[in-house]
Amino acid sequence: MAERSPGFRFAVHGLGSLVLAFLLLPIFAVVPASLNYGSFIRLPPEVWSTRWYARFFADREWLTSLVTSFEVAAIATAVSALLGTAGALGLTRIGGRLRAALTGLILAPMIVPVIVTAVSLYYVGRYWGMTGTVPGLAMAHVLMCLPFVVLNVGVSLRALDPSWLRAAEGLGASPARVFATVTLPTILPGLFGGAVFSLITSFDEVVLSIFIAGVQAKTLPVKMWEVVRLEFTPILSVASTLLIGLTVLLFVLFRLAAARARVAGVGP
């Protein structure tokens, strides 16, 4: 095409680089913002200080919300991994329309606007005793995490040659043994990918959480949501910076692991 024209090349690469900068740079604006001295955020700060970090770690409410986030994410990830792996294995065993319908059902929470799911769960959750509890919020998060587990394990399962299963059975292995020695090792990369995406999805989730969390299950994003509607204090930038740091760490670890094993890449 016009690749030979240096002007065209320059234009495409220039525009593309600008878009990448637009995607990445604004996120990191919260880092200098967290280092303000004053109680109003100024970018860049006039006086630099780490005192808002000290405030954050001295504040019981912020710390509790951080711990709650970890609890909810751990439960949501474990439940999603179990339900999702079983589901992905089940989906490969059935055919045609039923399979398409069930896949649609599992992916539906990604298509239905989260606000609609959140409001409907908020309504029934009050009668079920689901709102304001850590397990209740985790169950809501499972809705958003399941698709990632099912998709990733599903991709790994494509690499599973059915003749291996028959060979293992023919050699006298019990169904449990076949699963442990043939199926599980094959789907492990997909399961790992799905679990990491579940963890991140739960940790980042805001809309379901602000409806279901109540007072008792306030995660970090819920606490941030409450504060950001009142004031733009540097402590919000501290919370954001900490979450970004954690995410960068997970992202790098995940990419390193993915480069070693063939982790299926369905998900962000």
Partner: peptide
């Protein structure tokens, strides 16, 4: 460059929106 496109998806919408408020 591909990581540059994927990484923002890992960051909570709340944080990305808060960053835009500041900017």
């Amino acid at each position: 460059a591909v990581y540059g496109v994927l990484f923002p998806l890992w960051i909570s919408v709340l944080i990305r929106t808060f960053a835009w408020i500041l900017l």
